[in-house]
Design a protein around this nucleic acid. Sequence first.
DNA 1: CACAATTTTCAATAATTATTGAAAATTGTG
DNA 2: CACAATTTTCAATAATTATTGAAAATTGTG
Lengths: 176, 176
Amino acid sequence: MNPTDNSPLTLAEAKAQFVHTWGVSGASWGVSKTLAQVHALLLVSAVALSTEDLMEQLKISRGNASMTVRELLDWGLIYKELRPGERREYFVAEKDMLQVTRCIIRARKRRELDQMKRSLDQLAALPGDPANAEYRAFHSALTDIQQLATVSDKLLNRLMHAEKSWFWDKFIKLFM
Amino acid sequence: MNPTDNSPLTLAEAKAQFVHTWGVSGASWGVSKTLAQVHALLLVSAVALSTEDLMEQLKISRGNASMTVRELLDWGLIYKELRPGERREYFVAEKDMLQVTRCIIRARKRRELDQMKRSLDQLAALPGDPANAEYRAFHSALTDIQQLATVSDKLLNRLMHAEKSWFWDKFIKLFM
DNA sequence: CACAATTTTCAATAATTATTGAAAATTGTG
DNA sequence: CACAATTTTCAATAATTATTGAAAATTGTG
């Protein structure tokens, strides 16, 4: 069955393990397991895969495959590959990991951080009596969190818009 | 009822809104809503709170409060405050947001990134035929992901062990 | 060590989230 | 425009995760 049976894993097994691990990781970061697994499968695939392929390889339903693929397109993590004369759509993953990082940062920043900042701005503006210890504690916690949010925001913006060379240069030099 | 009724929100309402927002954010990052809410409540509280206080203010059960508090202690995000002559335990949050960031990075890195790196190392070592396009695609995706994981790991280590002044200095100067 | 105060555990249940799959919609082609 | 291929939608259901609450365990004190 396996032409290199003395090797610990076949390529298919290794891919399956990667898909599994990526799925578990995704799940613990609030991403659906299927989304992460479809992404993983496309990341390590040499060829574009159709919805049919995904359904078969991950044993998921047509509906699930369709919705998951659409969401990954939204994130910008995969692309459609249209083949002339074929109705069926194929998908390939963005393989450049800096680009992948950017897509994830952009999506999550917009959904979480930007919304959080809006809420913080509103709450930090709350007027109150500075002689009231409860008020002082609230206000000071809020401005600290705001400051962190602001710095994180700027940092993430920089990362998102960084040139590839800038990113690796600055970061590797600074941190390694 | 509210002594400053012309103000848009009372302090209690503002706290409640913060607790709610923090809870929603936590939930979308794979943390239980209750965990995030207990953390939020303690972050903006001027005084230490008991399990009883948490149960009452967040309307959660004793069991839930107990488990959540224990998990936050594990993360290092809150501390016990023992009062002489009292059996009951009180809790205060770590208020320094750099410290909070460190705790979160440390916990998540250990749980997710370190485990992912172990899996990647194993899979990237898979021998195979370089003439096989499927194998080449798999191997190259894996080494790219490994490189990202390694750089992320070093970056996070730096952040985790950074002095407060170093962190703000370097980062604010670099990114603002 | 008995007791009361408090915390922890964990099986049962509730709440939430993910998934299915059939029906409807869309798309391209003769 | 009819038809077949394919995708999308979404109500129903399954699977997962969070929460409860009562019983057991722990802790400190007389």
